[in-house]
């Protein structure tokens, strides 16, 4: 193993290049489309429902009728997985989706939710108490 060098010039070039690619890929997120905030729900890879999140007055649940089951909770300007029949609960742990580009997926039930558009007001990235 001694013959392997820990850090080389090529590594710096590589890391800089990757950071630049990241910025290029993030550009559409930083400048989102100018449309109303909409949650798009996919099931088995097909779009099954679009929900306009700005018009929501009272929160409600959406059962996706899958096996294992997956239930979404829709609220004003946000949406999240609230119940899932799987083991890892990754979809629930991803929390509220409230910005354009936010994605939450539940692989066992083959569903996922993508938020598109732009919110009316700015949304904080995180809230600390």
């Amino acid at each position: 193993m001694e013959k392997y060098v820990f850090f080389k010039k090529a590594d710096i070039v590589l890391i800089t290049l990757l950071i630049l690619i990241c910025f290029a890929l993030f550009a559409p997120r930083i400048f989102p489309q100018d449309t109303a905030l909409t949650a798009v729900i996919y099931k088995n890879g097909q779009e099954v429902r679009r929900i306009e999140l700005e018009g929501v007055q009272q929160s409600y649940k959406v059962d996706l009728h899958t096996s294992p089951d997956a239930v979404l909770l829709v609220d004003k300007n946000k949406i999240r997985y609230i119940h899932a029949g799987c083991n890892d609960k990754l979809c629930i742990n991803s929390g509220w989706l409230q910005k354009a580009g936010d994605v939450s997926a539940c692989l066992p039930s083959k569903t996922f939710v993508v938020v598109e558009g732009k919110p009316s007001g700015s949304v904080p990235d995180a809230v600390a108490y």
Partner: peptide, 23 residues
């Protein structure tokens, strides 16, 4: 694999996150 299991290519939107994470 995620794309094959879910039958969509929409996970590509995860790619920039994962690239930073890989870094």
């Amino acid at each position: 694999v995620a794309a094959i299991i879910s039958g969509t290519s929409l996970f590509v939107s995860y790619a920039p996150f994962l690239l930073i994470y890989a870094l």
